Simulated scan of single mutants.
Amino acid sequence: MAHVVSKSEMRHVSVEELRQMASDCRESIWAQAQAIGREPKIYLHWTAGHYGQFWDDYHVQIDEDGEIYVYGELDEILSHTWRRNTGAIGVTLLCGYQANTSDLGPEPPTAAQIEGMARAIEALADGLWLTICKEFVATHGECADNETNDWCHEDYGPRTTCERWDLEYLQTDESPAFNPWAEDGSRGGDVLRGKANWYHNQRG
């Protein structure tokens, strides 16, 4: 069960520090994943909690202002994504309190958080030698419905039971509304991967 942790238990890091942390843990994370017949993954979440409220089940946590924090070590196995935690990094936005599929509530993802998550994705994927695509970088909603070219459990995402639908939409101009069947790039995961690839391309 997830528990709230204090900010003092978190490590505030820059994008480049996060990139180095991922690089330092690359061999360990790949070994974990390959031991169960997988490749490493990066799973994207929101906490459904408050801005500034940190948790012990996500490695990388992005606050309202877009600042990046790390809990523990990136190769620790934390309980962020059901049946998918080994060899995987959980990245979350600290937001989503009272969110539902028609309104993301009083604490939706901020523009700074969205950009912070995109930068974190780019740094982690670079450090782990992963391509930024749905197979390796997916929202909890996407992987809950097994959209990631693997099959780890029965579907429980936004296309089925909607038990988990983290980041299915961002309530922004790019991703305005809940539509898990959209193919126009407006799903939250598509927007976040697109932004992360943009940051990747800017680095050359």
Rank of each mutant, 00 (worst) to 15 (best):
V191Q: 01
L94Y: 04
I42Q: 03
T131A: 09
I77K: 00
D65R: 04
Q61K: 01
P40V: 11
I132C: 06
N201A: 15
A2R: 15
A125V: 01
A196N: 06
W165T: 06
Q171P: 01
D166H: 15
V60Q: 07
E135H: 13
G141F: 02
G127Y: 05
G96Q: 09
Q20F: 05
H200T: 14
G157L: 00
I89K: 13
Q202R: 15
A35P: 02
W198T: 11
T86H: 06
H140T: 00
A99H: 11
V70R: 12
H140L: 02
E39C: 07
R84W: 04
A35V: 01
R19P: 03
Q53Y: 09
S14A: 07
Y69T: 03
F54C: 12
A177T: 15
Y156Q: 06
G52Q: 14
E17W: 04
G52I: 12
M10A: 06
D24P: 11
S14Q: 03
G157E: 00
Y58V: 07
A120Q: 09
V15N: 05
A182T: 04
E154Y: 11
T131F: 00
R187S: 07
V91D: 10
G204F: 04
P180D: 13
Q171R: 07
T86L: 10
E107M: 12
T47N: 10
T47Y: 09
R38E: 15
L167F: 01
G157C: 02
E9F: 11
Q20P: 02
T139R: 11
D57W: 10
D190K: 02
